[in-house]
Design a protein around this nucleic acid. Structure first.
Lengths: 140, 140
DNA sequence: CTAGAGGTTCACGCGCACGTCAGGGCAAGC
DNA sequence: GCTTGCCCTGACGTGCGCGTGAACCTCTAG
């Protein structure tokens, strides 16, 4: 198939596919007229890339998975580097969640004091908007 | 004080301070020789900016807080726009945490199946590295 | 023959918060 | 006079994942 069809099937753009090729993630055969020619395996590779990127992997970090697809035929998980990649990314996500949770706590505290002490130190300010229905952290 | 001292006191760079000025967040008087001249209030403003940025606000979004500092003398919380800002940011953080949690679950599932099915379909692969001590999500 | 829908490469744009030169001026000590 | 340390204003670089032309070629249908 050619680049347009692959883009449609993979739910992305032709520009993205050429970008993956520039980055060495995707290699296309060429037809006699210079057009790129892709196989079903290439579609799998692109789906793999998109899936990893959707989970926060940088493009360069998807490389082990793509290479694992080529050598391991069928799955991209079955390589040591892939497992390493999963673990690293999970650690990053955990760290990021922790950071955001701390940030969330600080923000909630700030909002709280802001609502209490807003302008009129002792008496209740006239229904300061945004201070009713103070939001609790979901999922806790 | 001049820009270097302010940068040291605020724990940032002179370049950052000039950048804030370009963005209209910080206005400096000028000495006779053209040097910027800052006051203690400016230090408070810079601290405010840094604090907001540290909690994920974009530079432009720190503007209400800084302006609130000028008008409200003392705190930056006591303005309606600040409270709105807190709420919006909290909503963003919550959404981001939710996204990351879903991503985390998908990643853990992938790692799990990868560790199970790695290479040798039925028999246990020779202690695939990274598959021992499968990490659980912290804080749950 | 002529559109029109595809393909090709090259190369700049973007958003964001600055880092990092380049090329100068000002004040103070030796 | 020279060095040193601080300051000034441009203006380009960075990282990332493409978007968006420009200018051109190629195949197919009418």
């Amino acid at each position: 198939m050619r680049i347009g069809e692959l883009a449609r099937l993979a739910g992305t753009s032709t520009r993205a596919l050429r970008h993956y090729e520039e980055r060495g993630l995707l290699a296309a055969r060429r037809l006699a007229n210079g057009y790129r020619d892709y196989s079903a395996a290439d579609l799998r590779a692109v789906e793999e890339i998109r899936a990893r990127v959707a989970d926060g992997f940088a493009l360069a970090e998807t490389r082990p998975f793509v290479e694992c697809l080529r050598t391991g035929e069928g799955t991209s998980d079955a390589c040591v580097d892939s497992i390493e990649g999963y673990r690293r990314r999970i650690a990053q996500v955990d760290a990021e969640i922790a950071r955001l949770r701390h940030s969330r706590e600080r923000l909630a505290a700030q909002l709280d004091t802001a609502c209490r002490g807003a302008r009129g130190q002792g008496d209740v300010p006239p229904a300061l908007p945004g201070c009713v229905l103070f939001p609790a952290q979901p999922g806790t």
